[in-house]
């Protein structure tokens, strides 16, 4: 079947009804390893990608259910919001080990796309299920707010 990944139609070897999650199609078949595996049970957010702009946990989303949908991974993030998030992450030195950060960045991008000027509370509410074992939360919060300013000035 075909999937649309980062704007391109990609032929993947997935049969209808197959339960293999998108995460492993991305990582193992397509070598898009920017999407990370943390828990495999939708509990951490490390595997977050965007499906039609919505943050989606690829570890529990069978690839076979995504025909005709548009998947964005960290490698293909190029919206103004996404770029602003990456810039804010750079300015504020958010990353530590980095393992959770692809998921954080995509979740933050989705938030900013829906809410152009989120408050710190908005960030807490919409991103608290993206876990960071290095505990970069404080910087994430500040960086999302910073990113909203960057989008506003562009």
């Amino acid at each position: 079947m075909n999937l649309t990944i980062n704007g391109e139609a990609v032929e993947v070897n997935v049969a209808p009804g197959d339960d293999r999650p998108l995460l492993w199609v991305l990582r193992e078949d397509l070598a898009l390893t920017g999407t990370k595996f943390g828990c495999g049970v939708s509990a951490c957010g490390a595997c977050t990608v965007l499906v039609d702009g919505q943050p989606t946990r690829s570890c529990v989303t069978p690839a076979a259910t995504l025909e005709g949908r548009s998947v964005t991974t960290i490698e293909g993030l190029d919206t103004p919001q996404g770029k602003a998030v990456q810039q804010a992450w750079t300015e504020l030195d958010v990353v530590q080990c980095g393992w959770c950060q692809s998921g954080q960045i995509l979740a933050a991008t989705a938030l900013l796309t829906q809410n152009a000027s989120p408050t710190e509370d908005d960030v807490n509410t919409s991103m608290s299920a993206n876990i960071c074992r290095c505990a970069t939360y404080d910087r994430i919060r500040n960086a999302v707010v910073r990113a909203s300013q960057l989008v506003g000035t562009e």
Binding site: R27, I74, G98
Partner: peptide, 25 residues
């Protein structure tokens, strides 16, 4: 400078290009 990261590993870790042991496949 503002606009740059003080960390040498930031750039690769925000665009998915950083390779981790588990990404070696």
């Amino acid at each position: 400078a503002t606009g740059v990261s003080a960390r040498a590993d930031t750039a690769a870790k925000i665009n998915g290009s950083a390779k981790y042991a588990m990404d070696y496949h």
